[in-house]
Nucleic acid binder design. Structure first.
Length: 519
RNA sequence: GGCGGCGUAGCCAAGUGGUAAGGCAGAGGUUUGCAAAACCUCCACGCACCAGUUCGACUCUGGUCGCCGCCUCCA
């Protein structure tokens, strides 16, 4: 398996530190607000990476922290007259809810800063003792010039950094680049006792302390958003290597690309809280199936930027790419439903056109028809290549088309070949569900939920639709097609599309495009 | 100013030295009483532009243009 390592800026072969085991640390959220689509992308990407590593049979320890002590949390809490840790707890719950809806698995360990003060203080003490850090008035700073390799992760030159430093420099720091490991307490801020007096941890030290606690001084993978590479990850690395040895800490660095917001009038810009142009996961999920967001995100390789298209309308913004993803999901679930029901029906009796297995056919020909026969291998090859979910979804598209084709007309294929191919397709769908976290819902439930939602949006009364369908059925049986078509047209005007099944029953869906004012 | 990324059909998006996956939209067809769903066929002689390397380049090298980001909190 090959992955792109930020530190070496190249795709490299992945070799776990310890055969059969993988330790991965992903920087989690600072919980002072609801998570937006950008966060969703990061956590979906790493969820898939963890799922795939597990699929390969590796014993993965997935650690994703929650930062619950931080300047922004304190500020927000003061604004709202709330205790900082209470506010953090509230948004942690919201975060967990968002993750669950997106289909992300729960990490093995989800450490909080507030729960790891002893580890953090011990690490700072070690850095002070080894002269990698110094104390000024109750603050503790990391001395960047005591770590020769500083800047190597994010490819920064120290002199250039200093030239570009725009923040006002604290004159007590030896170098402008030095960063706080421990901050002395200020009035009205939460604080904890330490050897340097009451205070709280700096931003970067938590990840160093907590990754060491749960994964050891050296571990395999460290992930996060691209913007975290510098300075956050550079600083983590400096702290950890200064205390744990020159080759310690993360062995590979993975960084996901960003979400840009694209609107007709403003063009593209990064989605971020500071720009105020973000859409929260919950607000997007109020309009669309969370799984549609997941499918949308996995449609682009995790390191590439994604333009999140916004169609600004008087009645509120819509997300055309999510609408497309949701329609696609409808197709996928309809197909899954067909596959499962065909496989469970007796002897594949529902299949048309499949020739009975004869002696001449037994043992000859392909056991499983392409492309289903090679799905597993090709899926693995895509994922082995730096977790290429976009390529994997291309393979899924072929698999779904083959399933429908086979189910529509088996074209004289031996029945056992059809059965085996369907079994292979089903197995492929299981793999997709396990690794990508897609199509794991009950198809019937998904389709029903979606139709209900569309009905509600258009004020369609399902009982009335059923009555109209019954009336049309009677008309059809009486061969009164004029009347039947009139009823169909009536429903169609409401946005209801009828689908006559071969068995004489009629199913219906709500059309997804807005109904045009005049035909 | 330094560093990094991106630019592939109307739109989304893989590919990254051997002659352009997949999806959406569109056109035609099969099927259907009519539809819908589903399937099939078609849809980039070309991968921002220019110049090189090569038997061969979307893929490598150099340059140009455009967009985004990091260097400050940020997924």
């Amino acid at each position: 398996m090959r992955l792109y390592d930020t530190a070496t800026r190249a795709k490299v072969a992945f070799e776990p530190l310890e055969a059969g085991k993988v330790g991965i640390y992903v920087c989690g959220p600072t919980v002072y607000d609801y998570c937006h689509v950008g966060h969703a992308r990061c956590y979906v990407a790493f969820d898939v990476i963890v799922r795939y590593l597990r699929q390969l049979g590796l014993a993965v320890t997935y650690v994703r922290n929650v930062t619950d002590i931080d300047d922004k949390i304190i500020r927000r809490a003061q604004e709202q007259g709330e205790e900082p840790l209470a506010l953090a707890a509230r948004f942690t719950d919201a975060f967990h809810e968002d993750m669950r809806r997106l289909g992300n698995r729960v990490p093995d360990v989800e450490p909080t800063v507030s729960g790891h003060l002893p580890e953090i203080i011990a690490l700072v003490e070690r850095l002070v003792a080894s002269d990698h850090a110094y104390v000024v008035d109750g603050d503790v700073y990391f001395a960047v010039d005591r770590f020769a390799d500083y800047g190597a992760l994010a490819a920064r030159q120290l002199d250039e950094l200093q030239a570009g430093a725009r923040v006002e420099v604290d004159p007590r720091k030896r170098s402008p680049l030095d960063f706080a490991l421990w901050k002395a307490a200020k009035p009205l801020e939460p604080s904890w006792p330490s050897p340097w007096g009451a205070g709280r941890p700096g931003w970067h030290i938590e990840c160093s302390a907590m990754s060491e606690r749960y994964l050891g001084a050296t571990f395999d993978l460290h992930g996060g958003g691209m913007d975290l590479a510098f300075p956050h990850h550079e600083n983590e690395r400096a702290q950890s290597r200064a205390s744990g040895g020159a080759t310690s800490f993360a062995r590979y660095w993975l960084h996901n690309g960003f979400i840009n917001v694209r609107t007709a009038e403003l063009g593209e810009e990064k989605m971020s809280k500071s720009l105020g142009n973000f859409f929260t996961i919950r607000e997007v999920c109020a309009r669309h199936e969370p799984e549609a967001l997941r499918l949308f995100l996995l449609g682009t390789h995790y390191r590439n930027p994604i333009a999140f298209e916004i169609d600004a309308r008087p009645e509120g913004p819509t997300f055309p790419l999510l609408e497309e993803a949701e329609r696609r999901l409808g197709y996928a679930y309809r197909t899954v439903q067909r596959v499962r029901s065909a496989r469970s029906s007796a002897a594949g009796a529902a299949l048309s056109g499949a020739a009975p297995m004869g002696p001449a056919l037994a043992g000859s020909g392909p056991a499983v028809l392409p492309p289903a026969d090679a799905f597993r291998e090709r899926f693995a090859a895509a994922m082995d290549d730096d977790f290429n979910t976009a390529a994997a979804l291309g393979l899924l598209a072929e698999l779904l088309a083959q399933a429908n084709k086979l189910l529509d007309q088996a074209k004289g294929q031996p029945r056992d070949v059809v059965a085996r191919t369907l079994a292979a397709i089903d197995a492929g769908l299981e793999t997709v569900s396990a690794v990508l976290g897609l199509l794991g819902d009950d198809p019937q439930a998904f389709l029903q939920r979606r139709r209900d939602k569309l009905c509600q949006a258009r004020a369609i009364d399902a009982a009335q639709v059923a009555a109209q369908i019954a009336a049309r059925g009677a008309a059809r049986r009486a061969k009164d097609f004029k009347q039947a078509d009139a009823l169909r047209a009536e429903l169609s005007a409401l946005g209801v599309e009828l689908m006559d099944r071969p068995d004489g029953t009629t199913d219906w869906v709500v059309r997804e495009e807005p109904v045009s004012a005049t035909p």
